[in-house]
């Protein structure tokens, strides 16, 4: 029930942002449409046992911003390195504490950072198969696996303990 209220509030805010005006009419209209949308397309239930830890969120967001810039530059450099064909790898990363939410957040964060692409997800075992660009050898692949686990660790510290 609480999750649906949050979803309705979020949809209402998006509606008002789309109109670009904050009047009672857009507020009520947005709320009505949010309720209809949620009734027609109900969201799957997400089990979220943890809370939101501000310090952890800050640490995650800061590290994410750094990763984003660093790997954007790396991919851009690869693009302009003529005569060099980048090698890549598909790496299996078994998450330490798999849950639907943890799996989704980790995969989203991974996919937003250049150089890594989630090719396949094993939901029952909690394994992400990540295609990584610019991996020269097996040692680099291992380092990458550890960095994904660190990312999961930061996410757990930010958004509570996944069930």
């Amino acid at each position: 029930m609480r999750a649906r209220a949050v979803a309705a509030a979020g949809l209402t805010v998006i509606w008002m942002l789309l109109w670009g005006s904050f009047t009672p009419l857009t507020l009520v209209g947005g709320a009505v449409i949010a309720v209809i949308v949620l009734a027609v397309f109900p969201l799957p239930v997400v089990t979220h046992t943890g809370g939101v830890h501000p310090l952890g969120v800050l640490r995650f967001a800061g590290r994410f911003a750094v990763d984003l810039v660093v790997s954007s530059v790396q991919v851009a450099v690869l693009a302009f390195r003529f005569g060099h064909i980048p090698r890549s790898a598909i790496i299996a990363v078994p998450l330490r504490a798999p849950s639907d939410l943890g799996l989704t957040l980790t995969a989203e964060a991974l996919s937003l950072v250049p150089g890594s692409l989630v090719v396949e997800v094993d939901r029952s075992l909690g394994v992400l198969y990540v295609h990584v660009l610019g991996v020269p050898d097996a040692a680099a692949a291992d380092r990458y696996r550890r960095s994904v686990l660190d990312l999961e660790d930061r996410l757990i510290r930010a958004f509570g303990r996944p069930a």
Binding site: V69, S72, V75, A79, I85, P86, L112, P114, G115
Partner: peptide, 19 residues
């Protein structure tokens, strides 16, 4: 320039996030 589809997906979807 990138050799195969998966590598190209990195280029097609990612620099645009920061860009």
């Amino acid at each position: 320039r990138f050799p195969d589809l998966l590598s190209r997906m990195h280029a097609a979807t990612k620099p645009q996030v920061l860009g």
